[in-house]
Amino acid sequence: MRPQDVRVVERLQPAPDCVELVLEFPQDEEPEPGQFYMLSAGDGRDTYLPRPLSFFRTFSPRRMSFLFRVVGPGTAALGRLRPRDRLQAMGPLGHGFPLPERPLRAALVGGGVGVPPLWSLGRALRQRGCEVIALIGARTRFGLLGQAELQGLGIEVRTATDDGSRGHHGPVTDLLGETGADAVVACGPEPMLRAVQAFAERTRLQDTYLALEAAMACGYGVCLGCAVERKSPDPELGAYGTYARVCREGPVFRWDEVKL
């Protein structure tokens, strides 16, 4: 982890309210799937704090992209950046997904802009000989992200939309049962993560991991802003153990580690 001055090399717009920025780092980066960066852009008016974003695709040791939905001033400022603009990136941060020792059948579940961390994970799993299936959900077909990129890795993609405009009509988690997966990894809105948690509980699929989001100020563990409640806190820590830091202990947790 270190703060770095990075440069925008390309700006793509995969959906009307989504931007993919390709950034060039000054040095080789080796982030693990599931890790994230704190990116700063904007003049400080409601953008004083950097914003956490997972990296999406890596193109070379110094080039990777970030895919995000514009939801407020921070993401709007990032979305206004153009090639050659500079910004600060602090990272890589947090703990990523554990990778299996033996090949298995994995299901990756992505809701909306939860897809980015699944691309690098999917690639790592494929390199380890895993069979990977991706389940992508969104409100409408316009919000389905990352499909082509995941297919490009040799991953089968199934889709679901809330309005039925593409794929399964209903929550993406409905598709989990038929995948026959030995491991599940999910990233997306909280209701989706809760459904995945419930699925793991029902099927006792221990190898289920969730990549969480939280409001963050620092991203590197010093502010204690990004609290998530632990399911079974370490008794040694007393009340202090009630909450874990999403940015340090996470953002990836096993399904039974956290209360959502």
Binding site: L49, A215, M216, L224, A239, Y240, Y243
Partner: peptide, 24 residues
């Protein structure tokens, strides 16, 4: 040991931020 406040603990603000960590 103190647990601190339940989330959300952080909000953006013009030229700064708000926090209610609650001394975890």
């Amino acid at each position: 040991p103190w647990s601190g406040n339940p989330p959300i603990r952080i909000a953006r603000a013009p030229g700064g931020m708000l926090n209610a960590i609650g001394l975890q």
